[in-house]
Computed example of a mutant assay.
Amino acid sequence: MSHASPAPDRGIDRVLDRTVVLGYSRLGYAVRRRRWSAGDPRPGALEGRTALVTGGGSGLGEATVLGLARLGARVHVLVRSPERAAHAVARIEQQLRDEGRVAELRVERCDVSDPEAIDAFADGFCAREDGRAELDVLVHNAGVMPPDRTESVDGHELSVATHVLGPIRLTERLLPALRRSERGARVVFVASGGMYTQPLPVGDPEFEHGTYRGAVAYARSKRMQVELAPVLDRRWSPERISTSVMHPGWADTPGLARSLPAFRASTRLLLRTPEAGADTAVWLAATDPVPPSGAFWHDRRMRPTSYRAATHPDPGETEELWRWAAAAAGLDRP
């Protein structure tokens, strides 16, 4: 099965992508979706498999949980507040019942910006089933966009702690379970098209200098996710783990309404549904054969990581950032 659209569609797809407004909107999704039917994951593609979605209590995370569960996965919904996630879980269970399916969902508590919470959760998860717990899909979706510079419990800028350091540490601590995946595990990072506006902040990864803006900090941390994907692929591929990064386009989520109300108001008619935004994350987790690892995806196609020379890392910058991230995430070795 091919992982790209047929050749005649490439020109249309390229135009949609470069215009941004068309490609990231519901229009871009609708145009591309008409050409995907043959490439959808088969029904039941994740039967008997276990998935974990961080930030699965609303928006894109909720839509990702729904998509994975629809394909038969047992899904662990990792959230800071299980109480706040209860309504989302109930909605998912009801929707699947209406479709004649049974959801296997388990809500878990963990703040992915907190190393101690990560370690406690991961150690407990890996110890389940007499130490034989398996994890087949890990989707790093949890996101924050504080308006003012905020630090995590161990002193890192909150966006980078939540989007970069926490996911790296969580994946590393879950390696025993990921290794047990019979068909090879898949790790998916949910990034943002906003990362195209920012270079890799090698000299200031914690946003300690200049005027702090939440949207810029968010985009910078997403740039880090994208540029580190090949590094993480090299690190985890010997464990039979595929690593992908995707961006959802412009989706109408509670997080967008809360963090960027003016943007949402001006683009509301163009915004995708959360389910459309989550489509590529679900596809990366379930399609067969496994998509190329270490790549950046949007609407089921690999995308360039930069369109301007000013945002393309210089030689050695990605490795320099990786050494910082590995140390900040508390890895034993970079």
Results as ranks from 00 to 15, higher is better:
His3Val: 04
Ser5Lys: 11
Arg10Asn: 14
Ile12Asn: 04
Ile12Gly: 06
Val15Thr: 10
Leu16Val: 10
Asp17Pro: 06
Arg18Pro: 04
Leu22Glu: 07
Leu27Cys: 04
Gly28His: 14
Ala30Gln: 10
Ala30Ser: 15
Arg32Met: 13
Ala38Arg: 08
Ala38Glu: 10
Gly44Thr: 07
Glu47Leu: 15
Gly48Ser: 02
Thr50Lys: 14
Leu52Gln: 14
Thr54Lys: 00
Gly59Lys: 01
Leu60Glu: 00
Gly61Trp: 00
Glu62Met: 12
Val75His: 01
Val75Met: 01
Val79Pro: 05
Pro82Arg: 04
Pro82Trp: 04
Arg91Asp: 12
Gln95Arg: 14
Leu96Ala: 08
Asp98Glu: 14
Val102His: 15
Glu104Leu: 13
Leu105Cys: 07
Val107Phe: 00
Asp114His: 04
Ile118Arg: 06
Asp119Asn: 07
Ala122Pro: 05
Phe125Asp: 05
Ala127Ile: 10
Arg128Cys: 06
Arg132Glu: 12
Asn141His: 08
Gly143Cys: 09
Val144Ser: 00
Val144Asp: 00
Met145Trp: 02
Pro147Glu: 05
Pro147Asp: 06
Asp148Lys: 11
Arg149Val: 08
Glu151Arg: 14
Gly155Ser: 14
Val160Lys: 00
Val160Asp: 01
Val164Glu: 02
Glu172Pro: 08
Arg173Lys: 07
Leu178Trp: 07
Gly184Phe: 12
Gly184Asp: 11
Val187Asp: 03
Val188Gly: 10
Phe189Asn: 06
Gly193Arg: 11
Thr197Glu: 12
Pro199Leu: 08
Val202Thr: 14
Asp204Met: 01
Asp204Lys: 11
Arg223Cys: 11
Val226Glu: 00
Glu227Gln: 12
Glu227Met: 15
Glu239His: 11
His247Val: 02
His247Pro: 03
Pro254Asn: 04
Gly255Gln: 02
Leu256Asn: 05
Pro261Met: 00
Leu271Pro: 01
Thr273Gln: 10
Glu275Gly: 02
Ala278Gly: 06
Leu284Ser: 01
Asp288His: 08
Pro292Tyr: 03
Ser293Lys: 09
Gly294Leu: 03
Ala295Pro: 03
His298Tyr: 01
Arg303Glu: 05
Arg303Thr: 04
Pro304Ser: 12
Ala310Trp: 01
Thr311Ile: 13
Pro315Glu: 04
Leu321Tyr: 12
Ala325Ile: 06
Ala327Gln: 08
Ala328Pro: 01
Gly330Ser: 07
Leu331Gly: 03
Asp332Gln: 15
